[in-house]
Amino acid sequence: MKAPHVVPYQGSKRKLADDILNIISDIEIETLYEPFAGSAAITLAAAANDLAERYVIGDKFAPIPALWEMVVNTPQESADEYETVWNQQLLDGVHEPEFSYDHFMNVRQDFNREQDPIQFLYLISRCVKNAIRFNGNGEFNQSPDKRRKGTNPKTVRTNMLSASRVLQGKTEFISGDFRDIIRNATSNDIVYMDPPWQGTSTKKDTRYAFTLQIDELIEEMEDLNRRGVPFLLSFDGTCGDKSYGKELPQHLNLQKIGLNAGKSSQAILLGRDDETIESLYLSPALIQKITPVA
C-alpha cells in the first residue's frame, strides 16, 4: 500500500522508505519507534503495510508529535484548520489569486509565539523548497516561496485521513529527548533513528530546532546494544565527492549500507549529476534477526 504523505519537508525519508523497510519486512515487530520523527515517513510506510503491531512517533520539537497526534486522532478537524489557514492567503477569490507574503509572515510570527501544529504544517508546505530553518533562538525563520501556494487543502485532507486510517488506535505520541522516547524499547521492537546529520548539526546550522551531541547518540547506541534492541540509523552519506560526517566507532559493530537517494536538489540547480548516497547502519541485534539460520 502506498504510504500517505502529510508533511512535505526537505530531508524526508519518504523516497527511501521502501528500501529501508525491505530490510525488516520479514521479521515480527511489536513496536516501531521513530524518535526523530519529522515527517514520520518510515512510520507511515510501515503502518501502510502493517509491519508492526504498534508505533511510537516522537520528537524533541514539540509541534511535531503534537501535529501527528492531531492528524491521527482528529483528521477532519485538523484538515479544516489547515484549510482555514491556507485560504487566508488568497487575496482575490475571483481572479487569479495572489499569495500574500504578509499572511505567511503573520502565521510565522504567531507560530513562534504559540507553537500551533497546524500553523507549522502550513509554514512547511509554503516555505522555500519545503526546507525548514530556525534562528539561534529556535524560532522558525524560513521565507515563503512566492512561486507556489503550498499543499492544496484537498490533498492535505486526503493524506490526513489516510494516515489516520493506518495509525489510529495503535500509535503513541511523545515529545522529548530521543533517549526517553525509546527507553521502553525491547528486543521485540525496532528503533529507526534519523537524527540531524553529521556535518549539518552544528550551532551555526539553522535547519534544526535542536542540535544533537554525537557522544549522546553513541552512548545510546551502546545501551541499545547492551539491551539487545534492534535498530537502524540514518546518519551520514556522500554527495558527489563531498562526504558528510565521520565513521561511527567500530565497537558498535554496525553494518553500513548505502542507499541511493538520487540527485540532490542543489546539484540539479547547479547543473551537476551528483547523486546522494545515504548511509544506513544496522545494529548487531537487527543483523541477527534478519540473517537466515544455516
Rank of each mutant, 00 (worst) to 15 (best):
P153Q: 05
I290A: 07
I23R: 10
G38R: 08
L259W: 03
T158S: 14
G262D: 06
G271R: 05
I287L: 15
G38N: 05
L51M: 14
A41H: 03
E28F: 09
G150T: 02
G176C: 05
Q109H: 12
V156P: 08
Q266V: 12
T206I: 06
A37L: 11
R157H: 03
K170G: 07
V94T: 12
K204R: 11
E53W: 00
L280F: 06
I57E: 01
S164A: 14
A66V: 03
D80K: 08
G169V: 02
K146F: 00
V85L: 13
I20E: 01
F61R: 11
E219Y: 04
D180Y: 06
E77D: 12
R148C: 05
A285S: 15
H95L: 08
K15S: 12
E222T: 14
P35G: 04
R133S: 14
F134I: 12
T158N: 14
N137M: 13
Y82S: 01
Q115G: 12
R179S: 08
A37C: 13
E30Q: 12
P230I: 06
E77F: 02
Q115H: 15
K149T: 11
L232V: 02
K129C: 10
P195N: 08
Y33A: 04
V191T: 09
R226K: 15
Q88S: 13
E77K: 13
I64L: 15
G176A: 07
I181W: 07
G58S: 15
G136I: 07
L248R: 12
L282V: 02
R157A: 13
G150P: 01
K246R: 13
V94E: 05
T151K: 10
S143Q: 03
A37W: 05
E96M: 11
I23Y: 05
I214G: 04
N106L: 12
I27Y: 02
P144Q: 01
P63I: 05
N73T: 14
I290W: 05
A185S: 13
E83S: 15
D241W: 01
V94W: 06
D189H: 09
Y244F: 15
V191C: 14
L259V: 09
S265P: 00
L121R: 06
D189M: 11
R147I: 00
P4E: 03
H5L: 03
L167I: 07
Q10Y: 06
A48L: 04
V229E: 10
E219R: 13
P144W: 00
T206R: 12
E247Q: 15
Q198A: 15
L51P: 03
L21G: 06
D215P: 01
W68F: 13
V56R: 07
F36K: 04
K15C: 05
A52M: 10
K289F: 04
G237D: 00
R126D: 02
A40H: 03
P292A: 00
E83R: 10
V7G: 04
T155K: 13
D102E: 11
P284I: 08
T276H: 08
V56D: 01
I132H: 09
V166H: 03
S201A: 15
A48M: 06
T211L: 07
Q109W: 02
V71L: 10
K2V: 03
D18W: 07
C239H: 07
I182P: 00
K242E: 12
N184D: 14
D205E: 09
Q288M: 09
D205N: 12
L269S: 15
H103V: 08
G58W: 10
S234L: 07
G262H: 08
